[in-house]
């Protein structure tokens, strides 16, 4: 049975879609079968970031409403044969997602894939709660600024309350992915410190992705950054994050700082 990961944040524009594609491609490059699912019905983006926009025939809503079978809607990546995309509908709205439909699709995906990565829409409404509903673990994408941190905190509360795992009394595994980290702004003190974000959110960190032109270049050519430029700093950070997701323990470095913060982070008691 595959593992379901929700990539979520509360706030928009923090890097959920970028991260869903990058992590999906990173996991798929290790030969694991990955499906990346776009839950942002009405504002789909993942197809663009993965360079599949011209190959969308059917989408998640079609599968949910029984207008297409799952294999008809899944798009195989041109470069990686173990990477698939289940696009969102651009013409419908989030009400087209039904809890029963999402449950059926998730159950089916879990049979075929090792990893199912759900790219959540922003907000805390239906789309976001359905994206997290079936997750086994969550990647909480946060930028080092106050409003993003507070929204992430709110989302963590929902992960512990509104998911199937939570309702069964189990613990949702939550991981913090700090994105768009700008070493220059950090130096000037214009951003929250990594330590402060960790203290507020108190969930384990799986990576710090630097703010980088490489991410924009990758999305312009329609490829996840871990495929477009696998040696770039954001790609390397995403590769490490993917390894941590599958349980490896690796030291984490703050971009722009030489010193690892391994000891500090693992010395902290995570909730």
């Amino acid at each position: 049975m595959g593992k379901v990961i929700v990539v979520t944040s509360g706030k928009g524009g923090v890097g959920k879609t970028t991260s869903s594609a990058a992590l999906g491609a990173a996991l798929a490059q290790r030969g694991e079968k990955v499906a990346v699912v776009d839950f942002d019905v009405g504002l789909r983006n993942l197809d663009l970031v993965m360079g599949a926009e011209r190959r969308v025939v059917y989408d998640l809503v079609n599968v949910i409403q029984g207008e297409a079978k799952l294999p008809q809607a899944l798009i195989r990546d041109k470069r990686l044969e173990t990477l698939f995309l289940l696009p969102a509908s651009q013409t419908r709205d989030k009400d087209a997602l039904t809890p029963e439909g999402v449950e059926r699709v998730m159950g089916e995906l879990k049979r075929y894939f090792d990893w199912i990565i759900c790219d959540s829409p922003a907000g805390i409404e239906r789309g976001a709660t359905l994206a997290m509903r079936h997750a086994d673990m969550a990647v909480v994408v946060t930028n080092p600024e106050v409003s993003s941190v507070r929204d992430s905190d709110r989302i963590i509360g929902l992960l512990d309350a509104k998911t199937l795992k939570a309702e069964r009394g189990e613990r949702m595994e939550k991981h913090l992915l700090l994105t768009r980290y700008d070493a220059n702004r950090a130096e000037r003190g214009d951003m929250l410190k990594v330590d402060d974000v960790l203290e507020i959110l108190s969930i384990p960190l799986i990576g710090i992705i630097p703010e980088s032109m490489d991410v924009l270049r990758a999305s312009n050519i329609g490829a996840p950054v871990t495929l477009a430029d696998a040696r770039s700093t954001p790609a390397l950070a995403y590769f490490d994050a993917a390894r941590r997701l599958s349980g490896e323990v690796l030291p984490i470095t703050i971009p722009g700082e030489k010193r690892g913060i391994f000891g500090k982070i693992f010395g902290r008691k995570a909730a």
């Binding site: 805390i124 929204d151 963590i156 509360g157 507020i200 909730a271």
Partner: peptide
């Protein structure tokens, strides 16, 4: 977490952790 309320009119509330 942000957005959560703990309401306990009957007595004391102790939180082992932070209140966002």
């Amino acid at each position: 977490r942000s957005g959560q309320s703990v309401i306990f009119p009957e007595g004391d509330v102790t939180v082992i952790g932070s209140v966002a």
